[in-house]
Design a binder for these strands. Structure first.
Lengths: 224, 224
DNA sequence: CGAAGGCTTGATCTCGGTCAAGGCAGGTGG
DNA sequence: CCACCTGCCTTGACCGAGATCAAGCCTTCG
């Protein structure tokens, strides 16, 4: 989501609309959610777009065999809920405490995009960015080895999450969520993390914060 | 790619611009490719969009461990090559004989989109459609069982490829391509197809044409 | 006719799924 | 305050699906 670098898209704004000044508060309404509560569910009418401001959420689909596939983790700055379908194909549930989103009326955004070409360019860039993310996630699932997927996930989180002091990265989601994201078993996630920890590639502070100790070797274990 | 159903997007055109009458020949130039030749390669400048008219192509990325991940198969009617990056992150190579594409200048399309809102809506719909396809492909890779992936692939091809007489579906790509698309070994693809054939779920006419005999059971074996 | 590439089948081995159990932290109630 | 419970995380043992290695068949092409 490097929208801030698009020409003509900067404007003085409170830092809350992370990198997307075009999506100012006046266009939408702010909503706060509890952990585990749903922003929307599968089959709901798809008539809003959302920008996540704080906390974290997961976009997931239920599969026929009972498994849950997490399509994406939504972090502050991410726009979601856009698309051409009339109804939701996935549900979005919060995984972080104090998750705040701004909600925009879909038809309003669509007509704004037609009127304001600068906004249209911004949104287009966001959409292309989300396609890029989808593609790299597909490459992640293409990795056969479980450790490779976990390494790719850690690298993705380190890139996307805003770093805390000293390079500490937060994992707002549970091991179960990570497992459903990478399409491997929880136990395998746990074992992979243990392996990486024991080989000094990463260290953990609690279970939900990690730090990259050996970036080279983390990248080497991840395919691409 | 159900672009033809978007309001205001129809216009009398030769059938070659499958369902996307807005992308008329006057906007681009027609190019023909040999089998296995590249439309573009990774790291090439990304200054054209393409519409595939006949034949088939694969969009693939080379991974660090030597494996090749096929991100998408491109079939007649598919638009590809759009995005916000300045250079290609994948290469596109033809897999079908007589592959023909129409090539559009990127900056020209971008300014046309700003001038013509109807075209902009069409392109947006195409882009959203390609996001949908990416998502369902991700669910495909989320399936753990190899047979499930193969079933999902066959269903996808049956939907996307134009049916020939009597429900015969062509597979323009090799088993190796299918393997790299589903991220499983060629041998596993072959074995899965053999299983499905022996259980009367599908039949083959040669190695590159199949027919769905038992749709219910094909769908049942595929997750979702 | 031979060579090459694509496809299939068989045999073996390994990684990760599954089942089971236990540790740990946070929350609740006595 | 402590005991208990619950959910999350980790570790161990076992087993099976699929990767890998190997070989053979078929079609195509020179």
């Amino acid at each position: 989501m490097q929208v801030a670098s698009i020409d003509g898209c900067r404007r003085a704004q409170p830092p809350i609309y992370l990198g997307v000044p075009e999506l100012s508060e006046s266009l939408g309404t702010v909503h706060k959610y509890e952990v585990e509560s749903a922003v929307y569910r599968q089959h709901d009418p798809a008539d809003h777009w959302y920008l996540i401001v704080s906390g974290a959420a997961r976009k997931c689909a239920q599969m026929a065999n009972g498994r849950r596939q997490i399509m994406d983790f939504l972090l502050p700055g991410d726009l979601f809920g856009f698309g051409s379908a009339a109804r939701r194909d996935c549900s979005v549930e919060c995984v972080g405490a104090n998750t705040t989103v701004v909600r925009y009326q879909r038809h309003r955004m669509e007509s704004l995009m037609e009127a304001d070409q600068r906004l249209a360019r911004c949104i287009r860039a966001i959409i292309f960015g989300s396609i890029d993310r989808l593609q790299s996630r597909m490459m992640l699932l293409g990795c056969s080895r479980a450790v490779e997927r976990v390494c790719g996930f850690l690298l993705e989180m380190a890139q996307r999450a805003q770093r805390e002091r000293d390079g500490l990265v937060e994992l707002p989601m549970s091991r179960y969520d990570i497992a459903d994201y990478l399409a491997i078993a929880v136990e395998t996630v746990s074992r992979s993390l243990t392996t990486l920890r024991s080989e000094q590639v990463i260290t953990f502070v609690g279970t939900r914060h990690f730090r990259i100790v050996n970036l080279k070797s983390l990248e080497a274990r991840c395919c691409r």
